[in-house]
Design a protein around this nucleic acid. Sequence first.
DNA 1: GACAAGAAACCGTCCAGACGGTATGTTTAT
DNA 2: ATAAACATACCGTCTGGACGGTTTCTTGTC
Lengths: 186, 186
Amino acid sequence: MSKAHHRKKHPEAVRQQLLEVAARLSLEKGPSSVTLDAVSQAAGVSKGGLLHHFPNKLSLLDGLFDDLTEKFDRVLAERMRDDPEPRGRFTRAYVAIWFLPAGMADGERWKVLTVALISEPHLRERWRQWLDRQLAENVGTDSAIDTMLVRYAVDGLWLADLLGAPVMDEPTRAAMLERLLTLSRA
Amino acid sequence: MSKAHHRKKHPEAVRQQLLEVAARLSLEKGPSSVTLDAVSQAAGVSKGGLLHHFPNKLSLLDGLFDDLTEKFDRVLAERMRDDPEPRGRFTRAYVAIWFLPAGMADGERWKVLTVALISEPHLRERWRQWLDRQLAENVGTDSAIDTMLVRYAVDGLWLADLLGAPVMDEPTRAAMLERLLTLSRA
DNA sequence: GACAAGAAACCGTCCAGACGGTATGTTTAT
DNA sequence: ATAAACATACCGTCTGGACGGTTTCTTGTC
């Protein structure tokens, strides 16, 4: 009879912990390392415990997706709220997320989303819906060629970062940021 | 006793077929579906046959990586050879690969590379070396902020395409291409 | 506030199938 | 004859998941 069985119950904390562990594992050791065994063990819960929160693996991945997009939405909305200029507002928020990560772990989080999206074709459909909604909400202010280009570039930076490409030096990085912001207002 | 055992032997063709099947599987059903059983069966070879060409799974993935980067290099070099303007030449070749896929299947191929890179942390190191070499060879002509930005944007387009984002309409696509080419000369 | 009773939050065990890989046989090419 | 190019038959491990039990929390009732 283990200690964990007798400890105080904090279901929401455990759930969150499971999602976080799954995210970290996926990023550090590749998506194939996200197994029920590995996740539950790293989270300090039994596999049965994990399957209580997420009845199967798919729902764990779905849960991760929900969690990530939710947080992403919040950060985006917050950035947009503080931007007085309507034109390219959404795109600038998008840029800011990459260049000025708010929370420590935030920068890493969005990477996980990308990894999950690529390795789990099932999530792509949900991703498309999310994207469609975002673009529909910001059509008019963020559909110029240059603003689209900026968003694509951010995605590219994302990918490079994810693949561990050599980091840009600070002046280059600053110049890149400035250039992106300029183009977002075009 | 199967037919395959008795058929004419074309080792190089079989090897190529195995790589191609692995690529297609990874793209269509996600990297987790790339198993020795699935690949060998879809290629019309026994698992033993597959393991004759690639002694273990890692070497299969490595083989895939080699095959893809090799072809990628060739296409890049060809495009660059036909471009008289030195400034941004490498970047324009990079753009062309996405906008003007030469062979039918080529467009798909580079996607596979990205998927493999993300799902197999082991390949990232090899990718970094490839990237470093490319950048070193083209430093001076392709290191302006705007040209870098163009390459990142192409990566972003890549990613969007990979995730099955809604396709751009033709005028937008053309405008995007023109804009990217312009920026590559800056 | 006490207390039964059900619900929620876990744990431990077990299993069927998939997976990577080995060992060995058989056919074909040189 | 020898080696390369396959096929077949297994094996040990891992993985997702089912299942039944145990402990804690919550809720209604008095």
